[in-house]
Simulated scan of single mutants.
Amino acid sequence: MKRTILSFAAGIALFGLLTATAWAGVPTDTVKEGVDKVISILQDPKYKGAKAISGEQLDRLRAAIRQFFDFDELTARAVGRPWLKFTPQQQKDLSASFQELLEKTYISKFEGYNGEKFDYQKEMAQGNLAFVQSQVQANDGKLLAVNFRLIQKDGHWLIYDVIGEGISIMEIYRSQFAQELQNGTPDSLIGKVRDRVADIAAGRAPADDKAVLNDAAKQSATAKQ
C-alpha cells in the first residue's frame, strides 16, 4: 500500500501534477511554478481526447519538469559515497539513464491523476536544503503524507526527492544501486539501468520501482515460462 502511494506521489511530483491549496516560501513556490507550466500543457486543447500522453505533449512535459527537478542530485544521493569514485563521464551517463528510467517508471501514474489536491503543511529550510511537508487529499477523502526534499543551486530551488507515506524514492533506488555496486562496477550499474529502460520501452518488463535492475524482471519472466 505504501509503495503504491509513493508511486502515485512520485508520478505526479516528477511530472508536475501538483494542485496546491496553499503554499509559503520560495521552495514551495518552485513547485507551484512547475505546476502552472505542466497544467497548461495538459489543458492544451490540441491534446484533448488523446488516449495516452505521448509525442509532442510528452516532450513538452519533460522539458517543463526538468526546470524544477534535479535528477543529477537525486542520482548522486541514491548512489551515495561510491559516487565520488565515478568518473565525470560515468556520473553523466548514470544520471541520464536514471532520469529516463524514472520517467518511464512513473509516467503511467501521471495518466491516473484524477484531481487530487496537495495541501502544504510546513516548510523548513536550512542553508541550501529545504524540506516541504504536505498532504494529498484523495478522492475518497483519505489524507496521505507526501513530503519533498529540495536543494538550492545557483539561487534556484530544485526538488531532488519525494517521500510518500515514509517511503523515499532516493532510498528505494539507493538500496538497489548499492547491491549492484557491491560486486559490480559503475559501468555495470549504468549498463543495467540502461537495460532496464530498454526492457520497459520494449514491453519486456513492467514500469515498476520494485525492480530497478533487470534481474528481478528476468527472474519473473523465466518463472512464467
Results as ranks from 00 to 15, higher is better:
Thr19Ile: 06
Thr19Cys: 07
Ala20Cys: 08
Ala20Gln: 11
Ala20Ile: 00
Thr21Cys: 10
Thr21Trp: 11
Thr21Ala: 10
Trp23Asp: 02
Trp23Gln: 06
Ala24Cys: 05
Ala24Glu: 14
Thr28Leu: 06
Asp29Tyr: 10
Asp29Pro: 00
Asp29Ser: 09
Val31Ala: 12
Val31Tyr: 01
Val31Thr: 02
Lys32Asn: 07
Lys32Asp: 00
Gly34Ile: 00
Val35Trp: 03
Val35Arg: 05
Ile41Thr: 08
Leu42Gln: 08
Leu42Ile: 09
Leu42Asp: 05
Gln43Ser: 12
Gln43Asp: 13
Pro45Gly: 10
Tyr47Gly: 02
Tyr47Lys: 04
Tyr47Ser: 02
Tyr47Leu: 03
Lys48Ile: 15
Lys51Asp: 14
Ala52Lys: 14
Ile53Phe: 09
Ser54Met: 08
Gly55Thr: 08
Glu56Lys: 09
Gln57Tyr: 05
Gln57Cys: 03
Leu58Glu: 14
Leu58Asn: 06
Leu58Pro: 00
Leu58Gly: 01
Asp59Gly: 10
Asp59Trp: 00
Asp59Glu: 15
Asp59Gln: 13
Ala63Cys: 04
Ala63Phe: 01
Ile65His: 13
Phe68Gly: 05
Phe68Ala: 05
Phe69Gly: 05
Asp70Gly: 03
Asp70His: 05
Phe71Asn: 07
Phe71Pro: 07
Asp72Pro: 03
Glu73Pro: 06
Thr75Val: 06
Thr75Leu: 04
Ala76Val: 06
Arg77Ile: 10
Arg77Pro: 13
Gly80Ser: 13
Pro82Cys: 11
Pro82Val: 08
Leu84Tyr: 12
Leu84Gln: 14
Lys85Val: 13
Thr87Ala: 07
Thr87Pro: 07
Gln90Cys: 08
Leu94Phe: 07
